[in-house]
Design a protein around this nucleic acid. Structure first.
Lengths: 377, 377
DNA sequence: TTTGTTTGTTTAAAAGTTTAAGCATATTTT
DNA sequence: AAAATATGCTTAAACTTTTAAACAAACAAA
């Protein structure tokens, strides 16, 4: 064991006590002023020149500013030696640009969003932007807080996977001329930039796929929300049933609450497996619903795909381990992230850019869970 | 469909073309100066007073600064009306504090880290801090870049799940007196703050648990890395075998590369299932290894826990869907995140704080995968 | 009446950067 | 020789906020 390190049994409380929103328990003293880092002024002083010169050289503007070769190299050397790093805060204040993007996702615990977050971070870095991120946990209020905080930090623009009822927050952003791009979620009432898939069509296709494999009584689980993308998925499902002359029993639709997912899902699965209803397939509205549904399906020992066909929006690493790997509509995080960053940066460059909706393709990945009721193919 | 929105089939390339590090393909024009937001000066000008007054009022320092009640309310009203929001960039420049924490994780795609990231973000928010985050993908170089970028943005401190060979980067931070706290990963050679579990003991316990359930030839898969936490886990496994008088065959250890996980894991599983070696249980060094291993185990139709006992460090939502839900050593993200933020804020407040290692408990969660070779319990 | 205190406000400097404009000298062009 | 241009550097203002110090006016105490 290492000496010099205070090894100390910690007194941290038991894990897993979440929920109960708590107030700051520990009083943390006010932050101390940190040690000063070398500034351009320090370099200038050392060499007995003006800061302007230092700035020109260190920004590679020697040519335009006609700095002497000799001087330039002395400045560079001194900067190197002092381990000078530009203070981006000061630069931002001066330029009015922070080279910072705000990313707000509905739920960072959802792997779909964490994958996107990662892509966006990488993508932003390629353009020298840094990402400030937050998760609003599908809460309107938290979303507003995050927008405020990031906005106060002068982010140059936002990428937002919006929670329900946040239209007014977005309208406010629009009114302030702060550029932003919606991903995944969108609002018909808002004329804004967005990157998304054609949800209606994807759901329609998924149902078609199930029908093609012989399923006839197709249920769907959606979140109980007014969010347009979810409603479009629902509409796609409904219309597909209609087009294929299948009975559309309202009981086949499960509306699951964000905050009561487990309970609602349990009821829903029970209901659709009743002899009277006897769904033979389910379309899940997203990967979190599928995850929850799969748990219930496992518990009941329902065999997939023989007794129940299953397909869902979004992949999830967990789907590989279900006894029948799930078929799913793949929303490619790379495409969404890249398109969102690109669209946002264009808008930052040209705030008057016409509003645009970028559609990303969502291919259907076919695996075991929709092989049909006839076992063995 | 909505009018006013340009609906446009996108021309985005096929998903999944990752790898090949690419240069910025699209030239994005330089950002335009964004629309000016109202400043204290604007409020002051409107009311014909000095900015000092505005600052005092809007910071609730009317008392100390003896601002007139009448004036105070006029200022507040004007601020409200103009929708004034303080410019945190300017405030940071003035105060030398950004109320920003830099979070660098080894891999944000690992749910263990994304869970921690979420906790840290929440926790930071409670103390009015914002999190700037980045994932270094286990790359030394990327880690250095991130530290530089965030450091240039004057973060008040760092929380870091370090990649291999980053000791010098951390030493540099220490030398610059920039506060930071390591999580999960640590280095014996560095006297720094850290929050972690007792890896040696946890591994030791896991092996004890397997032995208790009748397993005798216990393999272990670790990352092929010099990272101390992994080596401690390995040491715990080895010592436990020794203490229990079990043969410790070097072939029972699998060293898996970060960048060749799939291939290495395949070879490893093949090897330990050879008649000559015939491992009857595996301890995985973390959840990513377990995920990869489980895929191979599934493919080969190996029955868990009858033919092979399985236990791992970290949970993972996917483990629920494996035919035998995995037993695992639970590293509680809440505890780690809370402890890290708390320790960091204390250090920011008092940079001379003595270095501390906080140990978080990692309880063993017992499930199906270690029920023993005797089927049916 | 002088001195002292209270009240309400302004001034000014500071944080680190950027950049247009200015000012000498020296060199070239007419 | 006068005018124009080139070279190498400095000055100064701006971005927004904070806060110590100064100031003026009104009032109270001596």
């Amino acid at each position: 064991m290492k000496k010099g390190t205070t090894i100390k049994k910690n007194t941290i409380k038991e894990a897993g006590k979440k929920g109960a929103s708590k107030k700051p328990p520990v009083k943390i003293p006010a932050p101390a002023k940190s040690v000063k880092k070398p500034s351009m002024r320090d370099i200038a002083a050392k060499l007995g020149v003006s800061t302007a010169l230092v700035s020109y050289v260190l920004n590679g503007k020697e040519k335009e500013a006609r700095v002497g070769r000799e001087m330039a190299s002395r400045i560079r050397q001194q900067a190197e030696q002092m381990n000078y790093k530009p203070n981006l805060i000061a630069r931002s204040l001066q330029s009015g640009k922070t080279f910072t993007l705000g990313l707000i996702v509905a739920d960072i615990a959802n792997p779909f969003f964490s994958a996107i977050a990662r892509v966006i971070e990488d993508e932003a870095k390629r353009y020298n932007y840094t990402v400030l991120f937050g998760s609003c946990d599908e809460k309107q209020e938290k979303s507003g807080d995050l927008i405020n905080i990031l906005s106060n930090r002068q982010v140059d623009g936002f990428i937002i996977a919006a929670a329900e009822h946040t239209e007014s927050q977005l309208e406010k952003l629009s009114a302030q001329n702060i550029p932003f791009v919606l991903i995944d979620r969108y609002f018909n009432s808002l004329d804004v930039h967005s990157v998304r898939i054609d949800n209606y069509r994807a759901a329609f296709e998924a149902v078609g796929h199930l029908i093609h494999h012989g399923y006839k009584r197709i249920a769907m689980a959606v979140y109980d929300t007014g969010l347009q993308h979810m409603m479009d998925r629902k509409r796609g499902w409904l219309d597909a049933l209609k087009k294929n002359n299948l009975k559309k029993d309202p009981a086949l639709l499960g509306a699951i609450g964000f905050d009561s997912t487990e309970k609602d899902m349990e009821k829903f699965i029970d209901r659709i497996r009743q002899p009277g209803l006897a769904a033979d397939a389910i379309l899940f509205g997203n990967n979190m619903l599928a995850l929850s549904g799969l748990r219930e399906i496992s518990r009941r020992g329902i065999r997939v795909p023989e007794q129940l066909g299953v397909i869902t929006f979004d992949g999830n690493p967990a789907f590989d381990f279900f006894h029948a790997p799930l078929s799913y509509l793949h929303q490619p995080p790379e495409d969404i992230g890249e398109a969102a960053v690109s669209l946002l940066l264009q808008t930052i460059a040209n705030p008057k850019k016409k509003k645009e909706t970028v559609f990303v393709k969502a291919p259907l990945v076919e695996r075991e869970s929709t092989r049909g009721v006839v076992s063995g193919e």
